[in-house]
Simulated assay, not measured.
Amino acid sequence: MLLIGCSKEEPVSSDSAPQDASYSMRLSIDLWPGYYPAIIAKEKGWFKDAGLNLKLDLPGNTDKMLALFSAGSIDAVAVAFGDAILVTRQMPDIAVILVTDESAGGDAVLSMNKEVLSDLKGKRIGTNLGGFGELLIRRMLDLQGVKVNEVNLVNVDASKVPDLLDSGGLDVGHTWSPYVGQAIEKGANIIFSSADTPGLIPDTVAVSGEFRRSKPEAVKIFLDVWFKAQNWWLTHYQEGNQLIAEATGQRVTSITLEGIRLLDREANVATFNDATSEQGLPNVLKTYNEFYARAGVIRTPAAPSILASEFLQ
Rank of each mutant, 00 (worst) to 15 (best):
M1Y: 11
M1D: 12
M1R: 12
L2Q: 06
I4G: 08
C6T: 15
S7H: 09
E9C: 04
E10Y: 14
E10P: 00
P11L: 05
P18K: 09
A21Q: 00
Y23A: 05
Y23T: 05
S24V: 02
L27V: 14
I29Q: 02
L31N: 15
P33E: 14
G34N: 12
I39M: 08
A41K: 09
K42T: 12
G45N: 10
W46Q: 09
F47R: 05
N53K: 02
D57S: 06
P59F: 08
A67M: 11
S73C: 10
S73Q: 14
D75E: 14
D75Y: 00
A78L: 01
F81E: 05
G82L: 10
A84M: 09
I85G: 07
L86T: 11
V87Q: 14
V87R: 07
V87H: 00
T88N: 12
R89H: 05
Q90R: 13
A95L: 06
V96N: 13
L98G: 08
L98D: 12
A104V: 15
A108N: 10
L110G: 08
N113G: 09
V116W: 08
L117G: 11
D119Y: 04
K123V: 06
R124F: 06
I125P: 00
I125F: 07
G126K: 00
T127C: 15
T127L: 00
F132S: 15
G133Y: 01
L136F: 02
R139V: 06
R139M: 07
R139F: 03
L141M: 05
L141R: 02
D142E: 15
Q144E: 15
V146R: 04
K147R: 13
V151L: 04
L153G: 07
N155L: 09
S159Q: 13
K160M: 09
V161Q: 03
G168P: 01
G168D: 06
D171V: 10
H174I: 02
T175E: 08
P178C: 04
V180D: 09
G181D: 11
I184W: 01
K186M: 12
G187Q: 09
G187Y: 04
I190N: 07
I191F: 06
S193D: 12
A195G: 09
A195C: 03
D196L: 07
P198F: 03
G199D: 13
L200Y: 03
I201P: 02
D203A: 14
T204L: 02
V207A: 05
S208I: 08
E210C: 01
F211S: 06
P216W: 04
P216I: 08
V219D: 02
K220N: 12
F222E: 05
L223M: 07
W226A: 10
N231Q: 14
Q242G: 13
G249E: 06
G249K: 03
V252H: 05
L257H: 04
I260N: 14
I260G: 01
L262C: 03
L262T: 07
R265L: 13
R265G: 05
T271M: 11
N273C: 02
N273K: 11
T276H: 10
G280F: 04
L281T: 10
V284M: 06
Y288V: 07
N289E: 11
E290P: 01
Y292S: 01
R294L: 12
V297F: 09
V297H: 00
F311Y: 15
L312E: 04
